[in-house]
Amino acid sequence: MIIDTVLEVAEREGASKILSVEIRVGELTMVNTEQLKFCLEVLSEGTPAEGASFKLETVPGVFRCKECGHEWEARVEGDDPALHSVFGSDLAALLGERCPECGSRDFEIVSGDECTVVSMEVEKG
């Protein structure tokens, strides 16, 4: 889907080559950025996006308390090794997280659940 989007935009813009693509990935998605980068490099072979630099930026998870409305950024703290994955995902914050203001366990995700093609640098002519 990402490559489809990138190629569609390139065609619409009349670009002959795609030099770089900036992608934003939410920390609370199930997307692994290292794997994604590898897949994009493989999938782009033989297309105008071949050799492009895929710049992946992660967006932190933000929660909102359903009780008091307080918003806070997901952060994995403490010494529990189970909370520190290789990629340091904010997903671990879903475990045992409480609103820092009122202590409620009932909160929703307000950001960190995106996978956005932000912009790209293309060559024309």
Binding site: E13, T116, V122, G125
Partner: peptide, 17 residues
Amino acid sequence: MHKVEEVDVMENLIEAN
């Protein structure tokens, strides 16, 4: 001479679903 241009996309694929 090639011209390099920055293109805004802002396509959130998870949002598309």
